[in-house]
Design a binder for these strands. Structure first.
Lengths: 341, 341
DNA sequence: TTGTATGCGTTATCAC
DNA sequence: GTGATAACGCATACAA
């Protein structure tokens, strides 16, 4: 495989000149440039970006760590990151934590060994040692889907508390009093925890007593939702509405309820979170909290590159989220008409 | 940042020895090893995998090129690739072509500059120059979701022809005679083209005349399906069944038909392709052709690593696909009961 | 505008 | 078992 040395010899110039035509062509005389360009073609020269990174101590690579690419939401933000990186000659290394702290730590270390210029992390372990180390050792990184509102870490996210509050408030306004929540495990999802806070505060503000049997923590999956709803609906006084902390849980919940003979939304209202693309294609169309995943990824990548260039101080950005009312929510059963009519 | 030279000095050994404790600890005396290990801790040494790659001319990185991470199917195979790579100390660089030939070419070049050890590609341009060049220049690569049954390229896929045939046959057996197909554009999806072949051959074998107005090529998306069905159902003699070349098209088709007042599956049968996770959560639950995406990714990664090690010759693997009958297909309208009863 | 010389952090090939 | 040292391919300060 030809190197710049080969090209240099062939063109009768120095390697420095070859390097210049690659990196700052305008700094070399047209004639010389052409000689070099020709030589490159002749020996089928292929640029070695690894060697460059080695020499400049800059890899033009970032590491992206997410729970799982399998979740549409993270696929969207990943796309945002990729698209932005792509425009800035930056490549992205991708890793899934599968919501495991140990894997998150391992990925961070592996990526650092790979000399990534920075990291974008949707963390599963906000209070853990991993992020602290990153701060201490001044590794540029930004948190995605963050719940942070201050501090020394750069982060972009939405107000999960508010999202949880809005979702719950929507149900309260419809007249629901028995509102359950199917949440992602708090131990691995700070976001879920914040959403629950919003949920609980909303109940509180509306004088609805909090029933702890109405909270189920489970894994973020279709199955998780399907199982959880079975538990909830077999309670002596089952809920008439369920707030799920993501759309997959909501879709699973809807399916599970239907399997139990419930008609939706008449017998049970369900609200999701995220507004994945398919949400509006479900039956009933899913009422949910929309968060701008793609934009979040894009913005996260932008912030990271700026951090790498040391152009900005740590900052926490909160993007807008909003309630999207569709067809999976309605007034409680027996509200408009008596149940026995 | 400390290097092995620092460690060597601190431990009073040579860099070669430090390198040895990293790569083949058993080759160095326990006592020396401990000295080195200690020195590493003292100066907070961090291994530089990039420098290693530079020296060994092996990056332990592979490039994964897919149409879009946004499609659940590719997310699954991506996971398969990642999981396998992860077990073999290999990182994966991810890129989306968005079904654009130019982007595919650019990604291949960029990844090669990055010195990836090999590539895994779900190509959008099977007959193009890009793959040919890869073969000529002996770059290890494997095709995913491939339609190949021979030749010099390593590939793993399913029998798309057979998938298309099975899907259509299912509809024929239910009694449908007017069967349309909503397909991904043939120009960017060889897979779609093969599925169409299966579809057409099945019609042929069952003496059902082929009507070219019953074929719509569109982009692989929910919207694509939704729009296509509108066109099909406004035909003078509209189809009673539609075979869609992926699940998103099918889900879009179902939604579009419902918006036109059709009851599914009574008024219209729909078959998808892929069996993405959410398929069984749709209403009606989607009848579709299942393909083992995760396994395909895993197998592709395995084959690629073997190709890199030069342990195997080019081979084309076909995984099993199968028809999954659920609720989105039924006998044609007016078949059991007269339409006007 | 172009060339010379050196460094980047590791591995690998010899010696010892 | 261990050490000395030459690659690896490119960028860059400094000279010319």
């Amino acid at each position: 495989m030809a190197t710049i040395l080969d090209v240099a010899k062939l063109a009768g110039v120095s390697t420095a000149t070859v390097s210049r035509v690659i990196n700052s062509p305008e700094a070399v005389r047209l004639k010389t440039r052409e000689k070099v360009t020709n030589a490159m073609r002749v020996c089928n020269y292929k640029y070695n970006a690894l060697a460059r990174g080695f020499a400049t101590r800059r890899s033009n690579t970032i590491g992206l760590i997410i729970p799982t690419i399998n979740n549409q939401v993270f696929a969207e933000s990943t796309r945002g990151v990729q698209d932005y990186a792509d425009l800035h000659e930056t490549q992205v290394l991708l890793g899934n934590t599968y919501y495991r702290h140990g894997r998150e730590e391992r990925l961070v270390n592996t990526f650092r060994e790979r000399q990534v210029d920075g990291l974008i992390i949707t963390t599963t372990d906000l209070r853990g040692a991993v992020l602290k180390t990153l701060v201490d050792e001044e590794v540029p990184f930004v948190l995605l889907y963050s719940t942070l509102k201050g501090g020394e870490m750069t982060a972009v996210g939405i107000d999960n508390y508010q999202g949880g509050y809005q979702a719950t408030e929507h149900l309260v306004k419809l007249g629901h009093k028995r509102i359950a929540m199917v949440a992602g495990n708090f131990s691995v999802s700070d976001r879920s925890f914040h959403r629950w806070h919003g949920y609980r505060q909303c109940l509180n503000n509306n004088n609805i007593p909090y029933d702890r049997r109405f909270l189920i923590q489970t894994e973020y999956s279709l199955i998780g939702g399907r199982h959880s709803v079975t538990t909830l609906l077999s309670l002596p006084k089952p809920p008439t509405a369920i707030f799920c902390s993501n759309d997959y849980l909501a879709i699973g919940t809807i399916k599970g309820a239907r399997e139990l003979g419930y008609k939706l939304p008449d017998d049970l209202s369900v609200v999701g979170f995220d507004d994945i693309r398919i949400a509006s294609y479900m039956v009933p169309e899913l009422t949910t909290i929309r968060q701008p995943s793609y934009e979040m990824g894009k913005l996260g990548a932008e912030l990271l590159l700026q951090r790498i260039e040391k152009k900005v101080k740590p900052i926490q950005l909160m993007l807008e989220s909003s309630l999207v009312v569709r067809k999976s929510t309605a007034i409680p059963p027996g509200e408009a008409l008596p149940a026995d009519c």
